[in-house]
């Protein structure tokens, strides 16, 4: 078999074994053993890719997989909110609005980084508290334009919901 494709096929099988949920480890071992019995060149890669798809679907349905997918989705959501915040801020000639959206962007990036790197539950609680506090302060004191207040409130609520969801997901991961 191709010198490039065979290591790729082997890598796929190793990855499949690594990510398969413990309850299905017997299937990971069965597929890995069977892979050694597949001789035909093209068949090895096809077999390996099939193993990987089985393992990925099993992982995605497992608790750990759901937590990771949830974390990824929340992080992506936070990054998107950050981008929206930055976009809105550039179009504002209203200083408090600009500050709020810039802060929203910074907090979103912080939330995304925290989700990807930190593990302590307390960090999420602090993040949630500070986000909510900042937005409450901004929406009650600074804004005169009602639409900006509504936007800020919505952004604050969304971020709080996202971060609470992240906290719950982390809790689920810890309990798993």
């Amino acid at each position: 078999m191709n010198r490039v494709l065979d290591p790729v096929a082997r890598l796929c099988v190793r990855w499949a074994v690594a990510i398969m949920p413990p309850a299905q480890s017997v299937w990971a071992n069965a597929m890995a053993a069977e892979f050694e019995a597949v001789h035909a060149g093209g068949d090895r890669l096809r077999f390996a890719l099939g193993c990987l798809s089985f393992a990925v679907s099993g992982w995605a349905r497992s608790r750990q997989g759901l937590v990771w997918i949830g974390r990824g989705a929340i992080a992506a959501g936070l990054w998107a909110m950050s981008a929206i915040g930055a976009y809105v801020a550039t179009g504002l000639d209203h200083a408090p609005g600009l500050i709020l959206f810039a802060a929203c962007g910074v907090y979103s990036i912080g939330g995304a980084i925290a989700l990807c790197s930190l593990r302590a539950l307390q960090s999420y609680a602090i993040l949630v508290g500070s986000c909510v506090g900042l937005h409450l302060l901004a929406t009650t004191g600074w804004f005169t334009r009602s639409y900006q207040a509504a936007l800020a409130l919505e952004a604050g609520a969304l971020m709080a919901v996202l971060l609470v969801a992240a906290t719950l997901l982390m809790q689920a991961a810890r309990d798993a």
Binding site: Q24, W27, A30, M31, E34, R46, F47, L49, G50, C51, L52, S53, F54, S57
Partner: peptide, 11 residues
């Protein structure tokens, strides 16, 4: 059948 179809059915 491909391995990705066969093994889930076997399971």
């Amino acid at each position: 059948l491909e391995s990705g179809t066969l093994y889930p059915i076997l399971a």
